[in-house]
Design a protein around this nucleic acid. Sequence first.
DNA 1: ATGTCTGCAAATCCTTTGCATTTTA
DNA 2: TAAAATGCAAAGGATTTGCAGACAT
Lengths: 172, 172
Amino acid sequence: MIASTPSSHPLGSGKEFSRSASPIDLACARLKSAGLRITQPRVAILEALIRRNAPASIEQLHRDLASDACDLVTVYRCLAVFEELGLVRRCFFHNGAGLYEINLDDSHHYHIVCKSCGKVERIDAALTDPTERMLRERGYDQVTHLVEFFGVCPDCRKKATESSPAAVISAP
Amino acid sequence: MIASTPSSHPLGSGKEFSRSASPIDLACARLKSAGLRITQPRVAILEALIRRNAPASIEQLHRDLASDACDLVTVYRCLAVFEELGLVRRCFFHNGAGLYEINLDDSHHYHIVCKSCGKVERIDAALTDPTERMLRERGYDQVTHLVEFFGVCPDCRKKATESSPAAVISAP
DNA sequence: ATGTCTGCAAATCCTTTGCATTTTA
DNA sequence: TAAAATGCAAAGGATTTGCAGACAT
């Protein structure tokens, strides 16, 4: 995938995790400091997420694991835990697929989704028009994009402060 | 909702359909020219979509209809037909909800999704930074945005031209 | 040792499908 | 009236839940 091609700007450089601690240690530390246990399935799933470094479905992740590493249900449960912790981020795409990607540093980036095979790759780039041009130059066809904004609307802010001042954190 | 407030730039003006034919007639004409039948459930669903003029779930739309207007299954089937026709567009948001919105003129616009109540409104505006500022000025809190790009990747283009030259049109 | 996680099985939820009946053109 | 669309019931697939046993701390 493009995002792991060495030195291919402005698509991902593939060395997002080469700072100090290894990404898996970083992730485990986050688990530990949240009072959660470092189990074999959790480590395996985190490693799979780190290896991909791109959004993947639960099924895909489960297949990535050693055939008997853990049950599919465990993958569901672990990803729910990781998401709550902020260790992974869930992305939704045009086709409705909800995919998980590792998120160790809250880096903001975009994705390019293949309309044909659904392959998802990370993009580190400026916005929209220049990006679309760049993608076409790289051989992508029928390039479009999706932009959505998220925020807490005035009504909800009011309700939140009226009842419990710390209510609106990460709602539906 | 904001998008229907008269003359509230740059959020939607609410008069997107005040040209010549009424939106429902326009939609029915599109059905007819596609060789499809104008049935009572279809008209009711289209009217509900037009009334909202914002993304809505299938359940929401079904509830919008007169209690016995049609079966939930029919709403599913009609929306699938409408989508194939391009009469509606399906949007996916951070929470995984797949919502349908009417699309009579292929106008390109964005959405603001409330992180708390999930309410979705249309935005007619330029991109990202100025938009986020504008939303904050209007009282939205914790404003973020999501950008995704879509296109057919080089690999799929190759495969498509090798096998059947007109294959890649609107895949998954 | 003990409270947390996991595996398995079964429940639940959303969506799709089959087929007889109704409706549109 | 003939083809297309709908309603109802039931199937299907993905995700969640309950609970006994296994595992990290």
